[in-house]
């Protein structure tokens, strides 16, 4: 049995409310909140980035996995906000978690689905018996241009998953990927903010790939939506995952535990992995969970997980996503947010 043997998440304490951003740009806060179903989003501290978020999420995954970090043979980090253009985030993360030096490290990038890419490769490496354990992390300090619709959602956080064959918490039943060349969202080399093609990001991009991957894995496994206890879809805003779930035949109740976007925002590579982590926090033995990511450019990875009885042993060994999202929040005004996100040009 190959699957997740430990999982953990991390979310910064800072938040900005949707109305605070709307006020800045003369927009109607109620229309924004109603349209995107977003209340607030997480903001990284001035000293936080994809590396620090990955380390804290990785520590929580290790607490649940209860293994010697030295036995981890691969560290893969998916993000579109790696702090270095050249120098892998994974080197710092593996060093901080005590995994070096006998380890294979790579950083992944595929817009918002880089985290599930890392998960897919770790799973494959363990299944092929190339490594005993693999650590996959999806984390981001997402960027959205000032005044752009993305500014209401682009947030910070991430989740880490350790894959192995023993002491499995959630077995991987099946995987499926669906990818095409679709220019819906991109960032050119050297550009600070990403760009997107507005409404084109919906039907031909998000829905085509999420639904394509969802239908594909249901056909491949012969499972029906009501066989699943929960489903998690990538969350660029509040509405898209609910619509995708409905189109595939899932109810809002099945999506509810992993639908963390109203309080977290879109954490890009950390979005669907953290929704999945929040779902594991409440899942029970024998339950099936569907996870479908989406990365612009564009593609989706789908996974079917079956939860084992070990979930009850590990659940309380690290902080849960709900606690991370609801406890110890520090709210920022737009000026503080602009400073934290380095949107103000300073002298050297």
């Amino acid at each position: 049995m190959v699957g997740i043997i430990g999982y953990g998440s991390y979310v910064p304490r800072y938040r900005i409310k949707a109305e605070e951003i709307a006020k800045q740009w003369g927009m109607d806060p109620d229309a924004i909140k109603r349209g995107l179903l977003l209340k607030e989003k997480t903001v990284p501290g001035i000293d936080e980035d994809t590396i620090t978020i990955s380390v804290e999420a990785g520590k929580n995954a290790l607490k649940r996995a209860e293994i010697d970090p030295q036995e981890i043979g691969a560290v893969y980090i998916g993000s579109e906000s790696h702090p270095y253009a050249v120098k892998p985030s994974g080197t710092v993360v593996a060093e901080a978690l005590g995994i070096v030096p006998e380890v294979h490290i790579a950083d992944y990038e595929f817009a918002c689905k880089a985290g599930t890419e890392a998960m897919f490769v770790c799973y494959s490496q363990v299944k092929a018996e190339v490594i005993k354990y693999g650590l996959a992390i999806g984390a981001d300090t997402s960027q959205g241009a000032p005044g752009d619709a993305l500014e209401y959602s682009a947030s910070a956080g991430g989740s880490a998953f350790i894959f192995g064959k023993e002491k499995v918490v959630a077995e991987i039943v099946e995987t499926y990927s669906y990818t095409t060349d679709t220019p819906d969202f991109w960032r050119r080399e050297g550009a600070f903010y990403p760009r997107h093609s507005g409404r084109f990001t919906g039907e031909p991009a998000y829905f085509k790939h999420v639904i394509g991957a969802g239908k594909g894995i249901l056909e491949k496994t012969g499972l029906k939506p009501d066989d699943f206890a929960y489903a998690v879809f990538h969350m660029p805003n509040g509405k898209f995952p609910l619509t995708a779930g409905k189109k595939l035949g899932f109810t809002k109740e099945q999506l509810e535990p992993g639908w963390i976007v109203p309080l977290m925002g879109n954490t890009y590579s950390g979005s669907s992995p953290t929704g999945f982590s929040a779902t594991l926090d409440v899942a029970k033995q024998g339950e099936l969970i569907l996870l479908v990511s989406f990365g612009s450019g564009a593609g989706s990875d789908a996974f079917v997980f079956k939860v084992t009885d070990r979930i009850d042993e590990v659940r309380d060994k690290a902080i849960k996503v709900k606690e991370l999202l609801e406890n110890d929040r520090i709210y920022l005004n737009y000026g503080q947010y602009a400073k934290f996100r380095e949107k103000i040009i300073m002298n050297e």
Partner: peptide
């Protein structure tokens, strides 16, 4: 005690954690 970025060696230097 948590893992954080302590400082940057200028805009193009290494990041110190």
């Amino acid at each position: 005690l948590v893992f954080r970025k302590i400082q940057e060696e200028g805009k193009t230097g290494i990041l110190c954690y």
